[in-house]
């Protein structure tokens, strides 16, 4: 496998002068992805209690640095396949704008700063959970599962489920059954969301030799599992109501949002040409998760 990313910053500037160093540094952290991670970190803080603005800002900053560090290290580890896939070949390393060594140093620096910030200014449990999410994403998902198992998204999805635990621990200093549910909701949301993308990007993943479920299991089994994961997800979103964690506003929101998601995934499952419905599920599932967490906050504040 080739190892791109050894070009100098100066050479990179000549190749694509419109991008500044600052823009590339920000792009290494994948800010669009982090915005949803931050929502699923901060919303649970308002469900768990009444956090001060200072705590919320510290957790948001620490969360951004930790997730940004993980994303930068991910780009370093994936530098040999990023140039193969259309959606990743313009990243700073494969396009030659940044040296690989610089990118990993940047990622580790961000994660170190986040750990210190959260441990010193919030609490140790919050820092430990955020760091666990970093290690899980870097070593368990990117380094181990992504290129070896079609269940990479299933088990690796746990990395994206750490943010609610971080937010919860920042306010309460502990974890409980409600926090565990927030973790599970994101865990079971991840497969249908990413398999909707993988169904439409099979050529890309195939070129990069990433064993995504549609390539290894076939489209039919993947679509079947997407459906059952969504059924399980919607059921899990309802269960916290039964032990008093949330009330009627959240219950109605979860059922309506979940019903729309189920309808979308069903269309993917039964359609002969699944491209459009799969893109729709990929986009709507992002909105679904965001609105579900907003509904939790609204319900908790009523």
């Amino acid at each position: 496998m080739s190892a791109p990313g050894h070009g100098s910053l100066a050479a990179a500037g000549a190749a694509k002068p419109s991008r500044t160093l600052a823009q590339d540094l920000v792009s290494l952290t994948k800010p669009r992805i982090i915005s949803l991670l931050l929502l699923t970190t901060i919303a649970p803080m308002y469900v768990a209690g009444d956090p001060g603005l200072g705590t919320v800002l510290l957790v948001a900053l620490g969360g951004y640095l930790m997730a940004g560090g993980a994303n930068a290290v991910n780009m370093y580890l994936d530098r040999d396949i990023d140039h193969v896939m259309a959606r990743t070949r313009l990243r700073p390393i494969p396009s030659g704008r940044m040296q690989a060594r610089f990118v990993i140093a940047f990622g580790v620096l961000l994660a170190t700063a986040a750990t210190w910030l959260l441990a010193a200014l919030v609490n140790v449990l919050t820092a430990a959970l955020a760091l666990a999410g970093f290690y899980f994403y870097v070593f368990v998902y990117t380094r181990w599962l992504k290129r070896t198992s079609p269940q990479n998204i299933v088990i690796g999805g746990a990395a994206g489920a750490f943010p609610p635990l971080v937010g919860w621990a920042a306010v309460t200093g502990r974890l409980d059954l409600t926090a565990l549910y927030l973790f599970l909701i994101i865990f079971y949301w991840t497969p249908p969301h990413f398999w909707a993308l993988a169904l439409n990007k099979q050529v890309d993943y195939g070129n990069a030799h990433v064993p995504m479920a549609p390539l290894v299991w076939g489209e039919r089994e993947t679509k079947d599992q997407m459906w059952w994961y969504t059924v399980l997800l919607v059921a899990l979103t309802v269960l916290p109501v039964t032990f008093g964690a949330f009330g009627l506003v959240y219950l109605v929101s979860a059922l309506v949002l979940g019903g729309v998601l189920l309808a979308g995934v069903w269309r993917v499952r039964v359609a002969a040409d699944f491209a459009k419905p799969a893109w729709w599920v990929y986009g709507y599932s992002l909105l679904y998760l965001a609105l579900l967490f907003v509904a939790m906050v609204v319900d908790a504040q009523l």
């Binding site: 399980l232 899990l236 269960l239 039964t242």
Partner: peptide, 11 residues
């Protein structure tokens, strides 16, 4: 919800 979750997991 428990029945739906278990059915989903079994499938």
């Amino acid at each position: 919800a428990v029945a739906a979750a278990l059915a989903g997991q079994v499938m």
